[in-house]
Each structure stands twice: as structure tokens, then as C-alpha cells.
């Protein structure tokens, strides 16, 4: 098995190299301030500002959806998602955006929503009175 051992050792070395290089692919959830400073593509987690306006008018641009989000430091900013307004967007609480800062706005290319109530509803449904 000796040659096998050599190969196994090589693989371990390779995995160490990979794991160190993979650190570049990782990032902590950034804030809007980080996005401004770095100018790079970042991931930002935050809360949807439900009281602020959300604009999606496909007649004007079907790839433009804007809303406001508060990041983890509580900074609120207008976000532009280059895409359509997702289903059940209003219900979502936690958002994770991928994108870059662009002037006063944050331009997102991807978005993940977490809707805690979607799959598990604690509410008891009552039949409507007839």
C-alpha cells in the first residue's frame, strides 16, 4: 500500500491548499458600508423594510424591482434587484442579497428570501362563516 500512502498524503496536501484558497470564496455577511468601501461583489443579509415603498412596474422595466432593506447594522438603503419581484416577497423577513454598491443604491443580482411562515403556519385556520 506504500504508493497509495504517498498518493493519500498528496491529496491531503491538495486539500489543505484548496481549503486555504477557498477562504477567498468566503465572506462574512457584509453591510452596506462594506459594499461601498470594497466596491466588490458582496453578500448582505438584512431585514426588509416593509413600510417603505416597493416598486415593480414591468411596463417600465421588467428587470427592475426596488425596495428598502436594513442591514445588520441597522442602515437602511434602497436596493435594486435586476429581475422580477419574487412571489410572496411581502411575507419575507430575512433577505440575503448578492450584488454591488452602485451610488446611493445597492444593485443586487441575486436574492434569497426566508419566509418562516410559508411552510409552517401556527395559525389555526377557521372556516369562514357561511
Amino acid at each position: 500500500m506504500k504508493k497509495i500512502y504517498i498518493i493519500a498524503v498528496l491529496m491531503i496536501v491538495a486539500s489543505i491548499v484548496i481549503l486555504t484558497s477557498a477562504a477567498d470564496d468566503m465572506s462574512t455577511y457584509a453591510t452596506f458600508a462594506d459594499a461601498d468601501n470594497s466596491g466588490q461583489k458582496v453578500k448582505i443579509a438584512g431585514q426588509l423594510s416593509k413600510d417603505k415603498e416597493m416598486v415593480y412596474d414591468p411596463q417600465v422595466d421588467p428587470n427592475y424591482f426596488s425596495f428598502y432593506m436594513k442591514d445588520t447594522e441597522g442602515v437602511e438603503r434602497k436596493v435594486v434587484l435586476l429581475g422580477s419581484k419574487p412571489q410572496d416577497f411581502e411575507l419575507s423577513e430575512q433577505l440575503v442579497l448578492t450584488g454591488k454598491a452602485g451610488g446611493d443604491e445597492f444593485i443586487a443580482t441575486e436574492m434569497l428570501m426566508k419566509c418562516p411562515s410559508k411552510y409552517k403556519d401556527e395559525e389555526v385556520y377557521i372556516r369562514e362563516e357561511k
Binding site: 411596463q59 421588467p62 435594486v80 435586476l82 443580482t109
Partner: peptide
């Protein structure tokens, strides 16, 4: 990709490829 909507918010191919909806 709508040919008339390519005015683009920012430069870069990535944003263009994100614009994939047509009215």
C-alpha cells in the same frame, strides 16, 4: 433579453445577464 432595455444601470456583462425578463 429585451433589445430595447439594454440601457443598463451599471456596466458589466454580469448585470446584463441578470436582465432576463421580457415584457
Amino acid at each position: 433579453t429585451n433589445p430595447f432595455m439594454m440601457d443598463g444601470l451599471i456596466e458589466g456583462a454580469e448585470e446584463d445577464s441578470a436582465r432576463r425578463n421580457l415584457l
